[in-house]
């Protein structure tokens, strides 16, 4: 007997609400090309990207501070295989601590020579300094900027 299979597809549309803090963060990206963090009123850590509250202390974070535009790479991966629905490899993705911040921020690293993956990995292993680079026409999204090795 042949086993029956029934085709299905989930194709729902959503509008995600970023909230006030992220909205202001994105606004700063678009209008002023700068990265902002918010400081926790209790532990005094400068959290980047900006958010409404510190989830460890449960305290508000209402002081806005600019960070970067330079920083230090903390850890990375080089994506070398294509996955459906995700950008084309090779892609470098890294956590970077921007100068002044107490937390690291994830984004892509552009402008590296990736013809030799192992060589590129060793370069990133040295935890290089990086600089934030904005796209020509920022749209107020996290993809408005990326990192570039200094």
């Amino acid at each position: 007997m042949e086993l029956v299979t029934i085709e299905g597809k989930w194709d729902f549309n959503y509008t995600y609400f970023a909230g006030e803090s992220a909205s202001r963060f994105f606004h700063e990206l678009r209008e002023n090309q700068r990265i902002m963090g918010t400081r926790c009123t209790k532990c005094e850590k400068l959290l980047v990207p900006a958010r409404a509250y510190c989830d460890v202390c449960m305290s508000v974070t209402d002081e806005w501070v600019e960070v970067g535009p330079e920083g230090t790479l903390e850890t990375f991966t080089i994506i070398t295989t294509a996955f459906p629905g995700l950008p084309k490899p090779p892609i470098v993705m890294a956590y970077v601590t921007l100068d002044g911040a107490d937390t690291a921020l994830i984004n892509l690293v552009h402008g590296m020579d990736l013809s030799d993956i192992e060589k590129a990995a060793q370069k990133l292993n040295a935890l290089p300094r990086v600089r934030v680079e904005f796209i020509d026409e920022p749209k107020g999204r996290i993809t408005d900027f990326s990192f570039k090795l200094i």
Binding site: Y16, A22, P49, T75, T77, F83, M93, N125, I142
Partner: peptide, 25 residues
Amino acid sequence: DPVYEKDFPLTTITMAALRASMLMR
């Protein structure tokens, strides 16, 4: 997170890779 993370190629694999490279170092 749909606000700050969904535009990046974050998957269970890349999340593990970010840590594996740190452990090696």
